[in-house]
Amino acid sequence: MRTLTALALGALMLGAVACGGPYPQSTLDPAADFGSHIDELFRWIFWFAVGVFVVVESLLLFVVVRYRARPGAPEPERVHGNTLLEIGWTLVPAVILILIAAPTMQTIFRTDGTPPEGALEVDVIGHQWWWEYNYPELGITTANELHVPQGRPVSLRLTSRDVIHSFWAPRLGGKRDVIAGRTNRISFTADSAGVFLGQCAEFCGESHAKMGLRVFVDDSVTFTQWVAGQRAAPPSADTLPDLARRGWEAFRLIRDPASNSCIACHTVQGVSGGVLGPNLTHMGSRSTVAAGALPNTAEGLARWLRDPPAEKPGSKMPRIGLTEDEIAALVAYLQLLR
C-alpha cells in the first residue's frame, strides 16, 4: 500500500515534469561557466543526499515492517543505548559533510564574482520594477535586455536605486542581491549564443513578479552590430514620417501634471533627459516592453501606453489618459527608435 502510493506519487511527478517544458529558466541546464561550476557542485551533493535518503528511509521502512507488534510476542528488551553505534552515526555524517564541504569551499572562491582579465564591465541598476544597464566601456545605456558577447568574460556590477532586488539569469549562473548602498558582482563567460530568461528573485514590492530580464548572448558579429546600433543617434525629427512625427510631438508635450509628461522620466538622446524610467533611445530594438510584461509589438506597446498599472500593478508609470490617436502616434514613433 505504502509502496504503491509512493510509486504512484513518483510517477505523477515525473509525468508532470515530462509534460512541462522546455524550461528556459532551468538551473540544471547551464550555458555559462558560473552556472556550470554550481551545477557540478550541486550534482555532487545531490547524489550524497540521494544515498542518505535511501539508507535512512529504507531503515525506517525495515523497522516498521520487521518490528510491528505481534500478538503474544515477549516484551522487548529495554536497551538504553550503545556508545559504539552512536559514535559511528556521528562520524559517518561528519565524513560525508567533509566530502561536501571541500568542493563547496573551492566553488565559493571560483564563483565569488571577481572579474576575470579583459572582462566587459556592465553596471546593472535595479529599479522598481525594471533593470538599467550601463556599459561604461561602450558608452551604451539600455534597459531590461542585456546583450553580452559570447565567449568573452562579462562582469556585472550590481546596485539598486530603491529597494533590494536580485539579479538572476538561471542558465547563466546564480543570483546576487542588488542592494542600494552596496555593489555586488557577478562574472561569467557565456559559452553558447541565445536568449536567456531571468527575473528579479528578491521580493521587491507589488510587481516583483513582473520584473523580468533577458540576456542576449550574441556571437561576435551580432554583438558588434548591436553595439553600433545602440551608439547610433536616433532619427532626427524632420526625417520622421507623419504619424511618427506626431508621436514625437506627443512625447515632448508638457502635460498637466508635468509628471505625466513622457520626458519627465524618459531619455531619448537629443530629445529629453529623464532618468526615472528606462532610456528609450533605442527602445525599438528591444523585444519586450516594461521588463518583459508585454511583447514589443504595436499592440503590446499600445496596451502599455493605455494603462500601465493594469499591465503591471503599482507601475511607477501612471495611467496618463492618452487618446487613441496619441497612442497610435507614440507607438509609431517609439518603434522607429531602433
Binding site: T27, G35, H37, I38, L41, F42, I45, F46, A49, V52, F53, L97, I100, T104, T107, I108, R110, T111, S166, W168, P170, G173, G174, K175, R176, A201, E202, F203
Partner: peptide
C-alpha cells in the same frame, strides 16, 4: 537533506528565493 544542499553557498545562489 535539501537543507544540506543550500548550506553550500554556490548551490544556494541558484536555490535561495526560489
Amino acid at each position: 537533506l535539501s537543507g544540506v544542499m543550500h548550506a553550500s553557498p554556490p548551490a544556494d545562489l541558484q536555490q535561495t528565493d526560489t
